[in-house]
């Protein structure tokens, strides 16, 4: 085999391996990203209220392309401490929750249309915690919690409150900050 042929073969092998490297890099990027939303929100795990990550006006935020009309706040959760209970009082402003994990992306989202008597309350749990909660439940008095099962035990919740006018920015920010994120006592 002449040197040129071997060079061509090596180039071909390199390109084929490059495809593998490319796929591996894309697949592992969410797991190893440190500056992703999960990594930035995780330090606020102990907070009992949602922490603003992008205030209305869109200034001073790490969130790319922020919506200047929206107040965006986040809560981290770790379900190994117990189910996470996210609760908000809804008002006239649009309010939505979305639930994310580090590598799985969004797993649930809900808007204030689902609110019951002005309150939107979601309990995030693992499949096992859901089974335990069901098993420990009083048959005559079933829980009214809206329960969702998270695919991973660690993740974060994003609340968005949209202000239709700039005069409502402060109100939107307050509504987002008032969202409580607590850990339920395990049964």
């Amino acid at each position: 085999m002449s040197f040129l042929n071997r060079l061509l073969l090596a180039t071909f092998v390199g390109v084929v391996l490059a495809a593998g490297v490319h796929i591996a890099a894309i697949l592992t990027a969410p797991r190893y990203a440190e500056q992703d939303a999960f990594g930035r929100i995780q330090p606020t795990l102990a907070a009992e209220h949602a922490q603003i990550i992008s205030a209305p006006g869109g200034a001073n935020t790490w969130l790319p392309m922020p919506d200047p009309a929206a107040a965006v706040a986040a809560c981290a959760f770790n379900l190994s401490d117990g189910p996470a209970r996210i609760a908000a009082k809804t008002g006239a402003l649009f309010l939505s929750f979305s639930f994310h994990t580090k590598t799985g992306g969004v797993f649930f989202a809900v808007t204030d249309r689902a609110a019951v008597r002005g309150e939107l309350e979601i309990v995030v749990m693992t499949a096992r915690q859901l089974d335990e909660a069901r098993a420990g439940e009083d048959v005559n008095e079933p829980s009214r919690d809206v329960r969702i099962v998270a695919p991973e035990s660690r993740g974060f919740m994003i609340v968005r409150v949209v202000a239709p006018t700039s005069s409502l920015h402060a109100q939107a920010q307050q509504a987002a900050e008032a969202v409580s994120c607590t850990v339920d006592e395990q049964v």
Binding site: Q35, A37, G39, L63, S98, V106, R160
Partner: peptide
Amino acid sequence: GDVPLATG
């Protein structure tokens, strides 16, 4: 480091 709008 984005958080896209969820479908819901």
